[in-house]
Measured scan of single mutants.
Amino acid sequence: NQASVVANQLIPINTALTLVAMRSEVVTPVGIPAEDIPRLVSMQVNRAVPLGTTLMPDMVKGYA
């Protein structure tokens, strides 16, 4: 099972992602792969992401 990126805190809309804001977890459905965490740092989310939410490619500006 592949680990996905999960919000480690509430991430407000247009907030730049940080290492502290993300964690890796095996979840269903699978979201952005955990190995992409370094690439996600400083990218912005295009919606509010609640704690525990799996990050999907369409939630991160410039990711997809």
Rank of each mutant, 00 (worst) to 15 (best):
P50R: 10
N14A: 07
I37V: 04
L40S: 00
L51P: 14
N14T: 04
N14P: 00
P29C: 05
V20R: 15
G52S: 05
S42M: 13
P50V: 07
A7L: 05
G52V: 02
T15D: 06
G31E: 01
E35S: 13
L17W: 00
V20L: 15
I11Y: 02
L17Q: 00
L51D: 11
G62N: 13
Q9G: 05
A64K: 14
Q9W: 11
A7Y: 02
D58S: 11
L17G: 00
L17D: 00
V45K: 02
A21S: 13
V26P: 05
S24R: 11
M56L: 09
M43K: 08
I37G: 02
M22T: 01
T15M: 10
S4A: 03
M59G: 00
S4C: 04
N1L: 15
V41T: 05
V20G: 13
T54G: 01
P50C: 09
Q2P: 14
G52N: 13
G62M: 08
S24H: 08
I11C: 04
P12N: 08
I11H: 02
T28I: 11
N8G: 08
M59T: 03
R23H: 03
L55D: 00
A48G: 08
G52H: 08
Y63K: 01
P38T: 09
T54D: 02
Q9S: 08
M22A: 00
T28M: 11
P38A: 10
T54S: 02
A48C: 14
V49A: 03
L40D: 03
N1Y: 15
P33C: 09
L17M: 04
A34N: 04
V41K: 03
P33N: 07
V49N: 04
V49G: 03
A16M: 13
T28D: 14
V6D: 03
P12R: 09
I37T: 05
M43R: 10
A48L: 15
I11N: 01
N46Q: 08
R23L: 05
L19N: 06
I32C: 05
N8W: 05
V6C: 05
D36S: 09
A3R: 09
A7S: 08
Q9R: 14
D58H: 12
L55E: 03
K61A: 11
L19V: 07
T15I: 06
T53S: 13
T28N: 13
V6A: 00
V45M: 03
I32S: 02
I11E: 02
A48K: 11
P38M: 11
R23D: 02
N8C: 09
V27F: 03
T15H: 12
N8P: 02
D58W: 15
V30M: 15
M22F: 04
R47D: 05
A48Y: 10
M59A: 07
S42P: 01
N14S: 06
S4M: 02
A34K: 05
A64S: 15
Q2V: 13
P50W: 06
P57I: 05
A3E: 10
V45S: 03
T28G: 05
N1S: 15
S24L: 06
I13P: 12
N8T: 12
A21E: 04
Y63F: 08
A21F: 15
T54I: 08
V26F: 13
T18Q: 07
T54N: 01
S4P: 00
V5H: 00
P57C: 07
N1M: 15
T53G: 09
P29T: 03
G52Q: 03
L55S: 03
V20K: 15
M43Y: 10
A16H: 12
I32V: 07
D36W: 11
R47I: 12
V60S: 03
E25S: 10
I13R: 12
D58V: 08
P29K: 04
P57Q: 07
S42N: 13
M43W: 06
E25R: 10
L17A: 00
A7K: 00
M59Y: 11
M56E: 06
Q44M: 15
A48P: 09
Q9Y: 12
V5M: 02
V26H: 12
D58A: 12
N46G: 07
A64R: 13
V26N: 09
P33V: 06
V60A: 01
R39F: 12
V49F: 03
N46H: 06
N46M: 12
S4L: 01
L55Q: 02
L17V: 00
N46R: 10
D36T: 07
N8K: 07
N8I: 06
L55V: 08
V20Q: 14
P50L: 10
P29L: 05
N14Y: 14
L19D: 05
T54Y: 02
G31P: 00
Q44D: 05
I37P: 01
D58F: 15
V45R: 00
K61G: 06
K61F: 10
V26E: 10
V60Y: 01
V20D: 12
L55T: 01
M43T: 02
S24M: 11
N14I: 05
M56K: 07
V20Y: 15
L55Y: 00
T54A: 05
L40M: 04
I32Y: 01
I37H: 01
L10Q: 11
V20F: 15
R47F: 06
S24N: 05
S24W: 09
P50K: 09
L40Y: 03
L19H: 07
A16P: 13
Q44L: 14
P57L: 04
N14F: 10
L40W: 03
S24G: 11
M59Q: 04
N46V: 12
V27M: 05
V5R: 01
L10V: 11
V41W: 00
P12K: 10
V20S: 15
